[in-house]
Amino acid sequence: MAIDVAVLVSVGRHPVSGRARRADADARAVELALSIAGANVRLIHAGDPGEPALRDYLGMGANTMTVLRMAPEADPVLPLSAHLSSMRPQIVLMGTRAEGGEDSGLVPYLVAQALEVPLVPGIVSLSLAGERAEMLQGLPRGRRRSLAASLPLVATVPVMAPAPRMSAFGLARRGTIEVKDVTAAADEARAAWTEGPARRRPKRIKVMKAASAADRVRAVTEMAAGKGKVLQNLPPDEAAKAIFDYLVAEGIVQAKP
């Protein structure tokens, strides 16, 4: 049975040139959606349907995109929630945060609240098992946590998710954009702001008390202390077994009976 996956996409901004582009995290959400077997992927954007950067998403292989036409500065939460309530997709995906505007990362939470479905933040993979979705959540330093939830759900995709596929010019050109007019409340708070480039905050210099280069590398790469155990000088078979057991214990791989 094909399930409906809605991906909310926004217009991003390149950090160097400031040029409009597909937003990195949203593009990864589209990539993740396209990788779900049997998914019927629908792209939804709230804003200006004439924005050329939207075609970058169509170039990834989805044929159509629905654009809820509203002023790009207006608040997209209500129109998106209304549209999704009528559409009732089993899965809603989007990037963890936009590249421009408020960048608060709150839209997924507000949409999930409006739809009254659970939200799973920061997933890097998703597969379906019947009425449930099995997901891997990305945590800092390459750690992963396996999660499962019943459908429907809203999930956000961070920039640590697998890289999005290339946007193909021909597909982007041929894709169609369906426009739906909506009324959106003007974002009055935002209208009063002035936007400027972010300044890097000064960073506290960490003084390393390390005797050797190896210690310094360890200090940078080591996980927070207290977890795990150090296994040294094991024969390869036992070492592999230890890693395998760990992965089974964490539920990342399933042991065959």
């Binding site: 290339m166 193909a168 010019f169």
Partner: peptide
């Protein structure tokens, strides 16, 4: 491959 499939 590049323009129609994005397969680079």
């Amino acid at each position: 491959q590049a323009l129609e499939k994005g397969a680079v």
